[in-house]
């Protein structure tokens, strides 16, 4: 019991319960008008409150599905549907995850590369940084269909266009974080390198890179979440090729709100899992670099 109170489990449980409770309240509020119009057409009067609640919570196309409806849909589409068919959420999640992963790796490498150039060259710093920032002011929803269409015209479809949209979103936090990271060594640490007459490569690998690693992990956590958003947005214009994005789109076409919420839940779970994985990698790296336990 003491561990429950001291640890993170209790606060998280309380918050989750509160959210679920509020969710139920809004489920009732938002679905009541439709339910009343149904009763009106049927001529039903004086429906008992328990009957009303059970009807409100089991609508086919609710404005807001109840948490247990979403949970049931999630469970069915994850565990009861064969994983290699479009009915399975695992199928869609994998498609999105592969684009996210590829785009994230591209984005991180691109971000580190640009940061190295920016830190080592004043001209590049002055000329490139404004473009890097400007790139993020363009709404991704505007540029994503262009990327997909343009690449499709050169017969690049499927994974690559989506990964590039992910890259576009995820390189930015890495550039910004790593520029700061590469510049984080104190003057005294740089002076020390100068007294050894160290080469720029030695200064980079023995000082700037290790000093920047904490910044890299922080940037990667932001970047991986952006990557996932990019992959999902990239799936919206590609039609029904699969992926959480196309699942969301299909859900909204056919008014399958429960399906949309289940897909959103999966997206949130993926993003949490990715960030957790990066945190684990961060912990391992910190330990290898002698951080305080």
């Amino acid at each position: 019991m003491k561990r429950w109170v001291d640890g993170r489990i209790l606060p998280i449980t309380v918050v989750v319960l509160a959210i679920v409770l509020i969710w139920y309240v809004f489920t009732v509020l938002l679905n009541t008008p439709w339910q009343q119009s149904v009763y009106g057409r049927e001529g039903a009067v004086d429906v008992p409150f328990t009957q009303f609640l059970s009807d409100v919570f089991s609508q086919q196309r609710p404005v807001l599905p109840a948490p247990h409806q979403v949970a049931a849909e999630f469970y069915t589409s994850v565990f009861n549907a064969p994983a290699h068919t479009p009915r399975s959420l695992i199928f869609h999640a994998w498609i999105t995850l592969s684009a996210t992963g590829l785009g994230f790796v591209f984005g991180t490498l691109l971000g580190i590369g640009l940061a190295v150039l920016i830190v080592h060259n004043r001209a590049i710093d002055k000329s490139l940084m404004p473009w890097v920032i400007a790139s993020q002011t363009i709404p991704i929803l505007a540029i994503a269909p262009m990327v997909v269409v343009v690449l499709a015209s050169v017969r690049l479809t499927g994974l690559i266009p989506k990964a590039l949209i992910s890259t576009y979103l995820s390189f930015f936090p890495v550039v910004v974080g790593m520029v700061k990271g590469f510049r984080s060594p104190e003057a005294i640490h740089l002076d020390l390198m100068r007294t050894y007459n160290a080469s720029p490569a030695q200064v980079f690998w023995k000082l700037r890179w290790p000093a920047a690693l904490p910044f890299l992990f922080a940037s990667m956590k932001v970047g991986v979440a952006a990557s996932l958003v990019g992959a999902i947005v990239g799936e919206l214009p590609t039609g029904a090729a699969g992926g959480l994005g196309s699942r969301l789109l299909a859900g909204s076409y056919y008014g399958q709100t429960t399906q949309i919420w289940a897909a959103l839940l999966m997206a949130a779970a993926l993003s949490a899992a990715l960030i957790f994985a990066i945190s684990a990698l961060e912990k391992l790296t910190e330990r290898a670099m002698g951080a305080r336990a």
Partner: peptide, 30 residues
């Protein structure tokens, strides 16, 4: 350039991710 001097700064300026022996090894590696 000839590495004719060793410099000791006001602060120890040890690299926190290196153990003491790796810190001492830093100039030797370079």
């Amino acid at each position: 350039k000839d590495r004719a001097y060793g410099y000791v700064f006001q602060a120890p300026a040890l690299y926190p991710w290196r153990t003491i022996e790796r810190n001492v090894a830093l100039p030797l590696e370079i």
